[in-house]
């Protein structure tokens, strides 16, 4: 009787463990990892190309993470911000003078700025 109860409990534990393993937990962890990787890749692009002005507000560049400076810019949306960065806007030269950056990379950096301002 006792042995059959122990077997039953053991089986129940195995079933629960298997169900947890099959749940969406692993999938969400993977996508979280990807988002984190994208964020880090964008941060690296920013540091290598844009930090020199956007960390300091040089020539009016909106400072990364400065919610006040981004408050009027965020509502314009990512597409407009990307367009401004690619074509140049105000005192900012096209692509900030970093001609080697692709539009996709600039979009990555803009999305990083937006995330940092939220």
């Amino acid at each position: 009787m006792l042995a059959s109860r122990v077997r039953l409990c053991f089986s129940a534990i195995l079933i629960i463990a298997a169900l947890v393993g099959c749940s969406g937990e692993r999938g969400s962890t993977e996508s979280l990892g990807t988002a984190e990787q994208q964020h880090k890749a964008a941060e690296l692009l920013y540091k290598q190309n844009c930090k020199v002005c956007h960390a300091q507000g040089i020539n009016g560049a909106p400072i990364v993470g400065n919610k006040k400076m981004w408050a009027d810019r965020l509502p314009q949306g990512v597409d407009v911000l990307v367009k401004h960065a690619v074509e140049g806007y105000g005192l900012m030269p096209a692509k900030g003078g970093k001609d080697h950056l692709t539009e996709a990379e600039i979009r990555q950096i803009v999305e990083y700025y937006v995330a940092m301002a939220n």
Partner: peptide
């Protein structure tokens, strides 16, 4: 000491 950057051509 704060950076002074080449901001234009």
């Amino acid at each position: 000491v704060y950076p002074d950057v080449a901001v234009s051509d």
